[in-house]
């Protein structure tokens, strides 16, 4: 049978999907065990026990300096920055895309500007943001928002502009004004795409968050990773990276689920 025709049952898919992950874990443990057999003090590939021990200190014990539980403070700080940055970017993207996508004069005026901003690597703006906004939360949130918004705007604008012309004409023959077309025709049809765009923006948003935290912060998952890097504390770095991956997967799955539930009409259609 051709491979293109080999469709799998759900249980088979789960088993197959788990296989490479399990293999990777086994390879890691074997390699770590080997290194520890050679040198019991090895820090580069910590064993699971060492990671659990290091993390339990961060997760359950209050830090003597700050009186706080470091792991949860880091998580909360990072999630707050991420949510604020993404939230601001989402609202801005939606409003700007609606204006750009529906109104040709606005698109002609601001389209090139958005394209121009979108090609600037956001990390290159980080020094400007730190200088202009200080080293506090504002600069980090701004980096995330500025980093992901232009791409989202371009994507959603293109989606709105690609709505069939027949729909826009039909709405006008039903008496709709530009404003009514924006809020009743374009906005609802942009929403599934907006959530999709947020899902895709999660990856870059995490990159900008970790970068900003690495450079100037006193809490945050990225700050912690770059702090303990100085001590080669792989027993903290690896669990932190796994935790970030877990958080990202949960966010992505939640958004995908919300999209399916909230917009039943959009399932299986490009528009």
């Amino acid at each position: 049978m051709r491979w293109v025709n080999r469709h799998l049952r759900r249980s088979e898919r789960i088993a197959l999907g788990a296989l490479p992950i399990a293999l990777l874990l086994i390879v890691y443990i074997v390699m770590a065990a080997q290194r520890h057999a050679d040198n019991p003090m090895d820090k580069i590939l910590p064993l699971p026990g060492a990671m659990a021990q290091a993390m339990s200190l961060l997760i359950f014990q209050t830090d003597q300096l700050t009186g706080q539980i470091i792991f949860w403070v880091d998580t909360l700080a990072s999630l707050q920055r991420l949510a604020l940055g993404l939230g601001i970017a989402t609202v801005i993207s939606l409003v700007v895309s609606l204006l750009l996508g529906v109104l040709p004069p606005v698109r002609a005026t601001f389209g090139p500007l958005v394209t121009g901003i979108a090609v600037i690597p956001p990390i290159a703006l980080l020094p400007i943001l730190f200088i202009a906004l200080g080293l506090g939360e504002t600069a980090k949130v701004a980096l995330i928002a500025i980093g992901v918004a232009p791409v989202m705007i371009r994507d959603i604008t293109a989606h709105i502009a690609a709505l069939p012309a027949e729909q826009i004409v039909k709405a006008q023959t039903l008496g709709a004004s530009s404003w009514q077309i924006m809020i009743r025709v374009a906005l609802p049809q942009a929403m599934p795409r907006l959530i999709h765009a947020v899902r895709l923006a999660l990856g870059p948003a995490w990159v900008f968050l970790i970068s900003a935290e690495a450079i100037a912060a006193d809490t945050g998952l990225g700050y912690r990773i770059f702090l303990v890097r100085r001590y080669l504390a792989m027993d903290v770095i690896i669990p932190y990276v796994a935790w970030i991956a877990f958080l990202a997967i949960v966010m992505d799955a939640t958004l995908a689920y919300a999209n399916r539930k909230a917009f039943p009409w959009a399932q299986g259609a490009s528009h």
Binding site: P164, E166, Q167, V169, K170, T173, G175, V185, Q189, A266
Partner: peptide
């Protein structure tokens, strides 16, 4: 020179709003 409610239209495709 603009579409208006005095002229109704039915196209071959895309005449209805998929989200309503």
């Amino acid at each position: 020179p603009e579409c208006g409610p005095d002229r109704g239209v039915v196209f071959q495709k895309y005449s209805v709003f998929p989200h309503l």
